[in-house]
Write a protein that binds this DNA or RNA. Sequence first.
DNA 1: TAAATAATGAACAATATGTTGTTTATTTAT
DNA 2: ATAAATAAACAACATATTGTTCATTATTTA
Lengths: 204, 204
Amino acid sequence: MNKKTDLRIVRTKQSIRKAFYELIQEKGYEAITIQDIADRAMINRNTFYLHYQNKPDLLDICMNELLSELKDAVVLCPISMNPFSISMLETVMQAVLEHISLNITFYHSMLIEENRIYQFQAKMETIVKDKLIEGWNPAQGNSTLAISKELLLEYLGSSFMGIVIWWIKNNKPLPADEVSYQFSRIVAYGHLRAAGIAVEDEKK
Amino acid sequence: MNKKTDLRIVRTKQSIRKAFYELIQEKGYEAITIQDIADRAMINRNTFYLHYQNKPDLLDICMNELLSELKDAVVLCPISMNPFSISMLETVMQAVLEHISLNITFYHSMLIEENRIYQFQAKMETIVKDKLIEGWNPAQGNSTLAISKELLLEYLGSSFMGIVIWWIKNNKPLPADEVSYQFSRIVAYGHLRAAGIAVEDEKK
DNA sequence: TAAATAATGAACAATATGTTGTTTATTTAT
DNA sequence: ATAAATAAACAACATATTGTTCATTATTTA
């Protein structure tokens, strides 16, 4: 029962994906029609419906395909028992940036400019957050913390994604390891100290 | 030449806006049709086109109306000459959260869940960033900074917005001043120190 | 070579958009 | 109070897109 998938299916699906990614970059997800995709992929419009339910369905499948790879890359990073530790932040950031580098066009389509697809960003952020709380021990912190754990996690997730998007949008202005280092440093030691600026007195 | 606007126009526009905000919350921006708006506002579909070009036009006008108020609130915050100073971060955050509190339904429609409108978040982030760099003196930092200024700004903007959205989404889990204090503290002193956790050694 | 199945092409109903007239109702100015 | 101006309603239209159905053609697998 080792049934190979028909080559026609593979070929058609591939050209649909390719056309879709191109069109997202050119005119943005919302503006794309099925006919656009069919034209670009050089298939009949009906054939599209043979493989995908509709446009959101296609989007979802494409996103999950990309993000499962990202997740694999992130999962490999060693867990630190020190919650939200510096080294872990740095390692995860670097893993993410390196993975993105390998699929830069895709990520560009999904995350940059008007044409960005918000859903994708949200899914990425979830992956990052899940990783960050992996080593978190609830008994350890909650009682003594002056800072809300949820607030902290949200803060880490959103700043992480902000840096990632900035990095892609500006065409990798710094090497991945440099960004990872600076980011983890700012987050851990504070932006003033990290930037070498005298810190104000904390309340008189 | 003190020409008052026709009362009919005011009334019609008002009910269109109201209907629009309600519908965004109910089914999300993309799913709304002009007919939906017309039905809800109890006007003829044609009348819509008498006042707005199309759906994106309406959205844009609504967003700018809200955000100009936000901008006014933020502009009032005192500028600190210490770039990205703690007190300024805290003040701006508080101003933003208080303004949002007064228009919580609108902001909820725009920023939360599937129905969120990404454009709106981007515009808000721009307002915040513009404020943060207001007191920035380019001669002061750039040369000596170990941290990229652009990276730092992006970091501040995205984490700021992350906290704001988290706060709205979770139905104001903390009072505005508490959030502002915690946020500025984390950003300034680093998340580990702010959370009262021993800081790892910075490189051996 | 035959059976299975992917892809095509044409047609269809349903829905939404944006526009153009004409008519009715309301407001503003005389 | 009445007339002129104009907002709103109503109907009709061309256009575009979606998702589906069905018969036909082409390609692949057995």
